[in-house]
Amino acid sequence: MAERLAIWGDVYRQYWRINVLTALEYRANFLVWFGFTFIYHATALIALWIILQEFPSMNGWNFPQMAFLYSLWMLAHSINNTLFLTVGDVPEHVREGEFDRVFVRPLNALFQIITTPQQIFPDELILALSLFVLATIWSGVTVDWWFVVFIPLIVMGGALIDFAINLVIATCSFWFVRVDALRWIAFQLEQEFTRYPISIYTKGVRLVLTFLLPFAFMNYFPATFFLDKAEDALHLSPFVGLATPLVGLVCFVLAYWFWIIGLNKYQGVGH
């Protein structure tokens, strides 16, 4: 066990070494990506701001609170994009036969996928952190020990939720050749539905966003807890907002179980 952990640690270190070197090789692209990501998130936030200039609130949420809601999602999402991005390349690897390689190396298949070197820039992470700090000050969230202990856990849990959903979509490619459209739509819906407090949705949508595709745990529940708002979507205890790390783990375990089924399918077990 200790030996295996040492190997994983060594691989992970080498993997990040390669990522950093690759990023340095293409450092000119960094500014381009920075601008790109900035404009993307800025247009979303500007749209919210404009609406809340005209309307005093959205179900009792003002703009700084909505910005806090957005920044929590963005933080979790950018962590996912930094740590687990390559899961999205699985469908392409499967299509082109590249995926075979995973089986001829003496390492857990998913860990190999996660440690496939790539071009990663911290652009989104930097922007997410900046927005998070701004929105925290702006919305008047009290920074106490609850905040300091739970925010990192919640962000990691949120990233795991994001990762689990991407993993399920990637696993679908063991059965269906093209899952690009599915992936694109899932992403679009994720970022549109996490933008608003789920209390504005109809009952069915609230339940879906809580239990089926638990995006609400990425930002809505934690945000209501830290903003001291009444949770008026499902009338749950405000402490539900602290369950995100647990929900993230459960999602990951379920997604991983599905992934194993997918691997068996790929290897043609039973036929």
């Binding site: 609406i51 309307f55 609130s57 179900n59 549109e192 608003y196 209390s199």
Partner: peptide
């Protein structure tokens, strides 16, 4: 459907 819900919420109290 999403936009219907968003506009409804915005107009509800305003």
């Amino acid at each position: 459907y999403l936009f219907r819900m968003v506009w409804t919420a915005l107009y509800a109290q305003n």
